[in-house]
Write a protein that binds this DNA or RNA. Structure first.
Lengths: 344, 344
DNA sequence: GCAAGTCTGTAAAACGTTTTAGTACTATGC
DNA sequence: GCATAGTACTAAAACGTTTTACAGACTTGC
C-alpha cells in the first residue's frame, strides 16, 4: 500500500539513502559514487518503479514544481484555450498547474491567491482583477500577468496584446469597407485593456475624420448578465439609428451583439457592419460570419510559461521586468461587407 | 522571507509546538488545553497570519487536499464548463484541482496519471481513454469516472449521462417533426458512450418503423481533423440525397455538420433537419438555431465532486460503487422544423 | 613508515507538520 | 498519607526527501 521510498532502494542495494539520493538526482559523478553502485541503484529504482514523493521533496527544497493559474473564467473559450497551452507547456518543464477562476471578483481573486500561496506554488500566472496590485506585490514568488496589467507598477512581468492597435485596426477596416457612422460597445470597466481599446477606437475615427463624440460610445456596466447586455445594446441601437457599424470591445459583447441585432431585425453586414475584439468559434460559424481581431492564443500561452520559467530557474539576482505585447490579427469575414460596395 | 511556522507561534506564546497544533486543529477541548492558552494561541496565529504549510501537513498525514482532473480537452466547452463547476465545488471542501487534457490519447493519459499519482493527489476525476482500465484500477486512491466508463469493470464509480435515452429522444423528436429518412453521423470509436448513442438512434428508428439500415449510419474515424470531418460529411450527404434529417453524435460533429451542410447549399431545418448531441453556444446562436439534447453540465460537475468527496472522507471500510446516470434535456430549436409542417 | 591526498561513501540534520505516549502537577477518596 | 484520577501540557518520532559535514580505506610521495 505504501509507496516505494528511497530507503527501500537503499536497503535492497545495501547502501545508504544518501547515496541513493545522489545517484537518482544525477549527482553520482559529482559526488563520486562508483559506476558500479550507481548502476545497481538505477536498476533497482527502475525495478521497483520508484517515484520520488514530491511532498517530501518540496518540503525540503522549497520547490513544488507547481504553478498557480488564475484566470477570469475557465469556461470562457479564450481562457480555456490559454489554459490548455499553459498546461501543455508547463508539463514540458515538469510543472503542474493549479487553477481557479475569479469571475473578475476581487474577493474571489484574493481567496485564490491566498490558497495558492499556502500551497507553496512556485510561481503565478494571473489575470488580475481591479485592486489586486497590493496582494500581488506581496507574493514573494515570481508572477506573470496576462490580459491586463497595472500601469502604475513598473516592475511586473506581463504578456498582453496590443489593445490599442487591435481596436485601431478593426475600426480602420470598417472605415475602409465604407462604413461612416461607427459606434463602440464596451464596458464601464476602468481596467487598462478596456481603456486602450476605447482609445484605439477613438483615434482611428479621428484619423479618418469621422465623428467620435459621446453618442458613438456606449459603455455598459460590466456586471450585467447576458439578458441585460442584450437589452442595453438593443435599446442603444434603437435610439441611434444613424449608426451603420459597431465595434464590440470583447467577444462576449460581440456575441450579445449578434443576438441584439437579430432581435431588431437588422441584417449584419449589409444593414449594420460589425467587428468584434477577440475571435470565437461562433464568429467563424455564424451566418454571416463575423469579422474580428483575434488574439494569438497559442503564443500568449507559450510566452506566459516561458517567461515564468525564466524567472523560476534564473540564478542571477539582477532582475529586469519582462513585458511582451503581442499583435492581433484581423480576420476579415462577412460581417464587415456593406450592401453596396461602391457607395463612396 | 520564510513563512511563519507553528514553532514561531509556540515560541511567542511560550508553549510547545504540540499545543499549538492541537489548538489550531480545533482539538483544544479534546486535548484539554485551557481556554486561556487556546485564546492566546489563536490570537497570535491571527496576528502573524499563520498559514499551515500544506506540504508538511501532507507529508505527515498522507492527504494533500488535491484532486486530479483528467479531461479529454480543457479547451472544449463541455469539459471547460464541467471543470469550472468541479473547481468551484472542490473549493468549498478545501480541495484544489490539478488538471490535464488527454486529447483522447492513451499515452498522454497514462503520463498524466503517473504524474498525478506521484504528486500524491487524494483522488481522481477521469475521462478515460480506451485501454486505461488497468492503470486506473492500480491507482490505490478513489476515482470517479465521467462521460464514459468501462462496462466490464463493476466496481468503479461514475457520473455519466443516459446516452441511449438522449439519442432516442433526439431521434424521436425528429420523427415527430415529420422527418422520415434520418441518418446518424458518429465516430468509429468503440467507447461505450458512442455505442449507446448509436443504439438509441437505431432503436428509435425501429420503434417508429423507419429504415435503420447500414446506409443511414455514417461512422467517421475519430482522429480526423476538422477539415477531414467536413469533407467526409459533405461526401456522405452528396451520395445519400434521400436523407431528410441528421442526428450528430457529438457537438463537435454537429459543428462540422453545420459547415458541411452549408457548403452543399442546403438549408438547415427545411432542407435537412438536424439535432446534435450536447449543446454548444454556437447551436443557440446559429441561424437557424440548432436543436440538441443537452447534458446537465452543472449537475455533472456537482455530482462528480460530491461522489469523490464521499469516497475520500468516508470512514467505513465497506464500499459500494456509486453509479449516477443523468438524463439529457431536449432543447427544441429551429433546425428541427421542416418546411411543410403537415406533410404527414 | 607516515603525512597528505584521493576515493567512495555515510550520519545526521533539516524542512513543518501531526500524533503517540508520556510527564508533572493537583485534587480527591478513604 | 497514599493510591487513584483528572488536568494541562510536552518530548519525540514520524512522514520522505536533500544536503552538509565528515569518515574510513587506499594510494602516493618522500
Amino acid at each position: 500500500m505504501k509507496g516505494i521510498s528511497i530507503k527501500d532502494i537503499a536497503q535492497e542495494a545495501g547502501v545508504s539513502p544518501t547515496t541513493v539520493s545522489f545517484v537518482l538526482n544525477g549527482k553520482g559523478k559529482e559526488k563520486r559514487i562508483s559506476e558500479q553502485v550507481s548502476k545497481r541503484i538505477l536498476k533497482i529504482a527502475g525495478k521497483l518503479k520508484y517515484k520520488p514523493n514530491q511532498l517530501a521533496r518540496g518540503l525540503r527544497t522549497g520547490k513544488t514544481k507547481t504553478i498557480g493559474l488564475i484566470v477570469e473564467d475557465i469556461a470562457n473559450s479564450f481562457f480555456a484555450n490559454v489554459a490548455k497551452v499553459v498546461e501543455d507547456e508547463a508539463d514540458k518543464f515538469g510543472y503542474k498547474v493549479l487553477f481557479g477562476s475569479t469571475e473578475d471578483n476581487e474577493e474571489k481573486a484574493k481567496g485564490l491567491l491566498e490558497v495558492l500561496r499556502y500551497r507553496q506554488v512556485d510561481g503565478y500566472i494571473i489575470t488580475p482583477t481591479l485592486n489586486l496590485d497590493k496582494e500581488i506585490a506581496s507574493l514573494q514568488k515570481p508572477v506573470v500577468l496576462m490580459d491586463r496589467y497595472f500601469p502604475n507598477i513598473a516592475d511586473s512581468n506581463y504578456v498582453v496584446v496590443d489593445n490599442f492597435q487591435g481596436a485601431y485596426t478593426a475600426v480602420t477596416h470598417l472605415v475602409e469597407q465604407g462604413y461612416k457612422r461607427i459606434g463602440i460597445i464596451t464596458t464601464t470597466s476602468s481596467q487598462i485593456q478596456m481603456q486602450q481599446r476605447l482609445e484605439g477606437f477613438v483615434d482611428a475615427l479621428k484619423k479618418h475624420g469621422l465623428p467620435a463624440g459621446k453618442n458613438v460610445i456606449k459603455r455598459l456596466p460590466f456586471d450585467l448578465d447576458r439578458a441585460g447586455f442584450i437589452q442595453e445594446i438593443t435599446q442603444y441601437l434603437q435610439t441611434n439609428k444613424d449608426l451603420d457599424a459597431l465595434f464590440f470591445a470583447t467577444n462576449y459583447l460581440g456575441i450579445c451583439g449578434i443576438e441584439s441585432i437579430r432581435a431588431i431585425g437588422l441584417h449584419i453586414g449589409t444593414d449594420l457592419g460589425m467587428v468584434s475584439f477577440d475571435d470565437h468559434d461562433i464568429f467563424r460559424l455564424h451566418s454571416p460570419s463575423i469579422t474580428c481581431v483575434a488574439q494569438p492564443v497559442e503564443e500568449i500561452g507559450r510566452r506566459l510559461i516561458h517567461m515564468l520559467i525564466d524567472e523560476l530557474e534564473q540564478t542571477t539576482e539582477i532582475h529586469v521586468a519582462q513585458h511582451v505585447v503581442l499583435s492581433l490579427e484581423l480576420r476579415k469575414r462577412e460581417s464587415s461587407v456593406p450592401a453596396v460596395h461602391a457607395n463612396v
